[in-house]
Simulated assay, not measured.
Amino acid sequence: MADHINLVKLCVGIDTFEELNAYIEATPGASRGHVTRMWPKQEEKLLNGGSLYWVIKGVIQARQTIVGLHEVIGHDGVRRCRIELAKPLIRTQNAQRRPFQGWRYLKPEDAPADLPQGRKSEPELPAELAQTLAEIGIV
């Protein structure tokens, strides 16, 4: 059994892997990451090899390794958590995800595998087959 846990998060306002990657590359290191209202309770497991999996347009398409959790006090005085994320953005196999708010834990056995380096996408399944598989929770 894995001794780490992952997070999954919707990537709002981003339409493609390339767009997210360009945003990450343009972001200075000190501010890189994602700020969230809630502090993850499974902090130790996240920092033991966990990743943040990005849902782009309803599909997990990428991940970044979590390298730290840092306290940030907002302009409103509220304590938040900045999830520090490593470069590079790593392409994963596509995995359908329904909309949700915030972030969710993602067990390692439920996380999509990384695509081989240099591969930009998976071969396309016929639309009807892809839809059927998504409906039963396989892709």
Rank of each mutant, 00 (worst) to 15 (best):
L46F: 04
V59D: 15
I56D: 07
E109M: 13
E18N: 05
G137N: 10
N6C: 01
A62W: 01
E19R: 14
L10R: 14
R91G: 02
L125Q: 09
G50R: 07
F100Q: 13
N21W: 05
R79V: 07
L115E: 03
Q117S: 11
H34V: 11
E25L: 06
D15A: 09
Q64H: 05
L133E: 01
A22N: 12
W54T: 13
P126N: 15
I83D: 00
P40Y: 00
E18M: 04
H34N: 11
I66D: 10
V12K: 07
G74S: 14
T65L: 13
G33Q: 05
G137F: 12
Q131W: 11
L133Q: 07
A22S: 11
Y53A: 15
G74A: 10
L115A: 00
T36M: 14
K45S: 12
E43T: 08
L52I: 04
G68D: 07
P123V: 08
L7T: 09
M1N: 04
V8C: 02
G74K: 01
V55S: 05
K87N: 00
A113Y: 02
G13C: 05
K120R: 05
R98K: 11
Q117C: 02
T16G: 10
E128A: 10
E19T: 11
H75N: 03
Q93M: 08
W54D: 15
E44M: 05
S121Y: 12
R82G: 02
A62N: 02
T36Y: 01
V72C: 03
G50S: 07
R37I: 10
V55D: 01
G29M: 07
T16K: 06
G118D: 03
Y105K: 06
R97C: 12
G29A: 13
P40Q: 07
E19S: 10
P99I: 09
F17C: 04
T36R: 13
I138C: 09
G58E: 15
I66N: 02
V12E: 06
V78Q: 14
L129Q: 14
T27Y: 02
K87F: 00
I66G: 03
C81V: 14
R32W: 00
Q61P: 01
V67Q: 10
K87V: 00
S121T: 11
K120N: 06
G137T: 08
D114K: 10
N94M: 15
N6R: 08
A26S: 03
G50C: 03
V55G: 01
M38W: 13
H70V: 10
N21D: 11
V72K: 09
V67N: 04
H75F: 03
T65C: 05
I136Q: 12
R63Y: 08
S121A: 15
N21A: 10
K41M: 12
N21C: 09
P123F: 12
E84K: 12
P126E: 15
K57G: 11
M1G: 06
H34T: 09
R80C: 09
E128C: 00
T36I: 14
T65Y: 06
R119H: 06
E18I: 05
Q131D: 08
Q101F: 08
Q61E: 14
L129Y: 12
G58Y: 10
I24Q: 01
V59S: 15
